[in-house]
């Protein structure tokens, strides 16, 4: 049986500057694999995917900051990273919009999936919460609050 080849673009050599961030991305990769392989027997069902969301968010944030904040990587490398799944392009697209600078995951702004057709609890600013002392984690990704004003 022939070896399964992935998309041609993945075979492409990464652009200049990938060596600088390769080790850090590798750390994220390992973490992600660990998170995927941990058994979720004792975890509530809705919490099973939280670590995966968190790591994916962190990695996307890392790539986003390298490109937009610190300007540490070239455009080619940024695009290569997006293409190769090192960052979530849809999530980054949201971060560029006002009011969504810290968005935790795309599910949390998806109003159609909720009962009252509203966003997730983590999108509510801390100041507007009725019970401020309570530590709320959202159901979809375990976010504790990602409003821009927090």
């Amino acid at each position: 049986m022939p070896a399964i080849r992935s998309h041609a673009s993945r075979q492409k050599k990464p652009p200049e500057g990938f060596e600088d961030i390769r080790d850090d991305l590798e750390v994220f990769n390992i973490k992600m694999k660990d998170a995927q392989n941990t058994p979720t027997n004792n975890v509530p069902k809705h919490q099973a995917q939280w670590p995966i969301f968190q790591i994916s968010h962190q990695r996307s944030r890392y790539v986003y900051e390298l490109y937009y904040d610190k300007e540490a990587i070239s455009k080619q490398l940024y695009e290569w990273l997006l293409k190769n799944g090192y960052a979530d392009a849809m999530l980054i697209a949201k971060w560029k919009k006002q009011g969504y600078e810290k968005l935790c995951c795309l599910r949390c702004v998806q109003t159609k999936e909720t009962n009252f057709s509203s966003t997730c609890i983590c999108r509510v600013p801390k100041a507007q919460m009725k019970d401020e002392t309570q530590d709320v984690q959202c159901v979809s990704c375990g976010c504790r609050g990602c409003a821009s004003s927090d």
């Binding site: 600088d20 961030i21 080790d23 850090d24 750390v27 944030r61 890392y62 390298l66 540490a72």
Partner: peptide
């Protein structure tokens, strides 16, 4: 410390 590393790391 590598300046490219994320803060969490």
């Amino acid at each position: 410390i590598s300046p490219f590393s994320p803060w969490e790391k």
